[in-house]
Amino acid sequence: MTTLDNKGKSMLKYLGLFVLILSSFILTNYSHALSWETSCTVDKGSIQRKGWSSYVFKTSKNHCRGGIFKQRSEINTSNISVTRKQTYVFSTIMAMNTKSAEPFLFFQIHDGRNGCSPPLSVRWGRNNRLSFDSDYTKGIGMAGCVQNVSLRRSGYTGPPLKRDGTKYPIKVVLAFDGNGSFNVDVSVKGNKAISGKYAPSSNPELVRSKQFYMKHGVYSQNVFAYEMTSEGVRVGR
């Protein structure tokens, strides 16, 4: 009887240790998990969710404040800490179907500013190549925008993309340094396509970001008819 009691106590001890280790693992790996929600609001039916991680984006008026872009159908994540060193990997299989050549943004690292381009936008251009948009801001709307030339001049090395529903595996790797800067690498079909670095300006007139968050969908200056699917949207660390 005594032997059984000792075994029982030993089992409980190891079980408690296992629970402690498991809890630590969960907190370490999932405490900074990101969740998605609709950005501002969209026209009815403009964002359709398929299963747990796939979306269909369609034309919508821009219901957000500020800026000159008239069309927006996007989702955004919860906040990412500016002061924590960490790496995130955004991935999806994306397909654009449209007869228009209108340029649009499909991924952003935003900080909540109004008017200016955010720290990072990935643009699908009229020439069907990718480029970066990036601004600094004085916090006074469009009048206070200063272009971030370093990111805007990053060269695209991938092939022209098609707007006929062709599926493209897209991956965006973001390495945040904990001081407001981050490196970005975008790959298409597993091949590195465009990369660069965002660093806050040393100009005291320019506002430093206090938070970051991701945005995904279709954001364009002009309204155009399209349907974009994004399958298996995932953010890993």
Results as ranks from 00 to 15, higher is better:
residue 145 C to N: 10
residue 154 S to E: 14
residue 78 S to H: 02
residue 104 F to S: 11
residue 165 G to V: 02
residue 181 S to V: 02
residue 170 I to L: 13
residue 30 Y to N: 15
residue 43 D to G: 04
residue 148 N to D: 15
residue 220 S to M: 01
residue 30 Y to H: 15
residue 87 T to P: 04
residue 16 G to C: 08
residue 63 H to C: 09
residue 4 L to H: 05
residue 152 R to M: 14
residue 3 T to F: 03
residue 231 E to M: 05
residue 232 G to W: 11
residue 191 N to F: 07
residue 222 N to V: 01
residue 70 K to D: 08
residue 191 N to C: 06
residue 93 I to C: 05
residue 4 L to Q: 11
residue 20 L to S: 15
residue 159 P to L: 14
residue 208 R to P: 04
residue 208 R to V: 10
residue 16 G to Q: 11
residue 74 E to W: 03
residue 194 I to W: 08
residue 155 G to P: 00
residue 63 H to M: 10
residue 200 P to R: 08
residue 3 T to S: 01
residue 105 L to Y: 07
residue 58 K to Y: 04
residue 70 K to L: 07
residue 128 N to Y: 07
residue 151 L to Y: 06
residue 119 P to Q: 12
residue 78 S to Q: 01
residue 197 K to F: 08
residue 44 K to M: 05
residue 96 M to P: 03
residue 79 N to K: 06
residue 105 L to H: 09
residue 117 S to T: 00
residue 55 Y to Q: 06
residue 122 V to Q: 09
residue 125 G to Y: 06
residue 22 L to H: 04
residue 163 R to T: 13
residue 37 E to L: 00
residue 237 R to Q: 15
residue 222 N to F: 07
residue 111 D to W: 05
residue 92 T to L: 01
residue 186 V to F: 12
residue 107 F to P: 02
residue 31 S to K: 05
residue 131 S to T: 06
residue 139 G to V: 00
residue 99 K to I: 01
residue 97 N to T: 10
residue 59 T to I: 04
residue 44 K to W: 00
residue 176 F to G: 10
residue 148 N to A: 11
residue 140 I to G: 10
residue 62 N to Y: 06
residue 182 F to G: 13
residue 103 P to N: 12
residue 97 N to Q: 12
residue 172 V to I: 07
residue 230 S to N: 10
residue 163 R to K: 14
residue 85 K to R: 14
residue 118 P to E: 15
residue 147 Q to K: 08
residue 109 I to V: 15
residue 26 I to F: 12
residue 200 P to W: 10
residue 148 N to L: 04
residue 51 G to H: 07
residue 9 K to P: 02
residue 20 L to E: 14
residue 149 V to G: 00
residue 130 L to M: 10
residue 44 K to A: 14
residue 138 K to H: 10
residue 144 G to T: 00
residue 139 G to S: 12
residue 28 T to C: 08
residue 124 W to T: 04
residue 23 S to Q: 02
residue 38 T to P: 02
residue 235 V to N: 04
residue 166 T to Y: 09
residue 161 L to N: 11
residue 185 D to M: 03
residue 110 H to L: 00
residue 221 Q to T: 03
residue 123 R to E: 13
residue 151 L to C: 06
residue 186 V to T: 13
residue 65 R to V: 10
residue 13 K to T: 08
residue 154 S to R: 04
residue 192 K to N: 14
residue 202 S to E: 11
residue 120 L to T: 04
residue 103 P to I: 02
residue 98 T to D: 12
residue 43 D to Q: 03
residue 71 Q to T: 04
residue 175 A to S: 15
residue 210 K to P: 04
residue 82 V to K: 02
residue 206 L to N: 09
residue 81 S to I: 03
residue 127 N to Y: 05
residue 22 L to Y: 10
residue 188 V to T: 09
residue 186 V to R: 07
residue 112 G to L: 06
residue 147 Q to D: 12
